[in-house]
Design a protein around this nucleic acid. Structure first.
Lengths: 210, 210
DNA sequence: CTTTGTGAATTCGTTCACAGCA
DNA sequence: TGCTGTGAACGAATTCACAAAG
């Protein structure tokens, strides 16, 4: 299997979102140049990206919106499904929990953890809340493979280590601190302060991207 | 001036964060291979990145942590300072507001907007909250150049258009919908659901990155 | 005609490897 | 000696350009 770049994955996910909107709007088919315009890419880029998902359009009608969306789904999603946990129910974690009624069925949010006993209340949207002490136990028992880390910076590295020991496969880190995790763990970090700095730089150096 | 890639900017911002931590820990100097290890890059990559900020280390001691951090700051930050607004005080916007006591003095959060009159209460951390009707007026009067968009998807595009008309220069879009903005606007989007899909894909295709 | 799918060319980003330096 | 700074080599990603298809 050829190597697919991270950027291609990002774009495929964007296409998918756009296609879902088009399905909602009742659009049936689309040309690469239109999908390029909607996503802020070139038509050649779009066609090159779509090669990896193995769905073929036709010169006369372009791509069937619904079938293309399905094909991207086959490519991105885990057919077995995966389970994800949120660690840390501060401001950010709670809004993630409220915000994230998952639109994609292949990844389910079932559990959350916090160290504060007051936060351990009844389920929210079928999501059960545990004390952080039970982290390893629940991750193993429930076979959770993904974790969203929204704990204070000071605790982030030690929680990450515990997750890795418990056998987690992927971590998204919102703790605004760069963490070190072993190479076999998929790791993503996102920090809003970094984004703010970046957009500030970009506005002054019209290095425009999209 | 040479073209600096987006990836280089991202890495510089990561280095900066690491350096700030090192300053806090009292570390005085650092070699490229150590900074590489802490940031998950190669030493050559680090040295190449640092070329653009114009700070020179010495072979014997490496880089002075405090001076390097300052140099990255000169490169990234706007010397005049910039003002940023948060639009939409739902779950996400509110947590952004609470979370974002800005650590970097060159970008100040002064105003927020919401369409719900109940949300228009007293200032939070010096941040004044306005009704969305006043968007254009306040953006112009206060000379706000950056906006964080955390409104529901259905309203995102129209608010973005209004911001552009009001003369905004950069937008960070957290509305989980891809938007179209004119080419002269710096634009960044981040969607947590996209990240979750991506990390799910990555765990199954150990295309590890860092 | 117009548009897809894709080799080939090109541009962009990373790594190598070594001269120069303290 | 061990490191930095950087031209040169390499590899990855994007764009070009055209054959094939309806």
């Amino acid at each position: 299997m050829k190597k697919i770049s991270e950027k291609t994955i990002n774009r495929l996910i964007t296409y998918r979102q756009i296609l879902n909107r088009l399905i909602y709007d009742g659009v049936e088919s689309i040309f690469s140049h239109k999908l390029a315009e909607l996503s802020g890419n070139t038509p050649a880029q779009v066609r090159r990206d779509l090669m990896v998902v193995g769905y073929n359009g036709t010169p006369v009608k372009g791509y069937r919106v619904d079938e293309l969306e399905k094909s991207i789904g086959y490519f991105i999603d885990d057919p077995e499904g995966q389970k994800i946990a949120i660690i840390g129910l501060g401001n950010l974690g709670t809004s993630l929990l409220n915000y994230c009624y998952w639109r994609y069925p292949n990844i389910s949010l079932l559990v959350a953890f916090d160290k504060d006993k007051d936060k351990i209340r009844e389920d929210i949207y079928d999501c059960h809340i545990y004390h952080i002490n039970l982290l390893e136990q629940v991750v193993k028992e429930e076979e959770i493979t993904l974790a969203i880390l929204s704990v204070p910076p000071a605790e982030a590295q030690s929680i990450a280590d515990r997750l890795v020991n418990a056998g987690i496969k992927g971590i998204i880190n919102y703790s605004s601190l760069h963490l070190n995790v072993p190479g076999h763990i998929s790791y993503e970090e996102y920090d809003m302060l970094s984004s703010v700095q970046k957009i500030g730089y970009l506005t002054r150096n019209k290095l425009n991207l999209d």
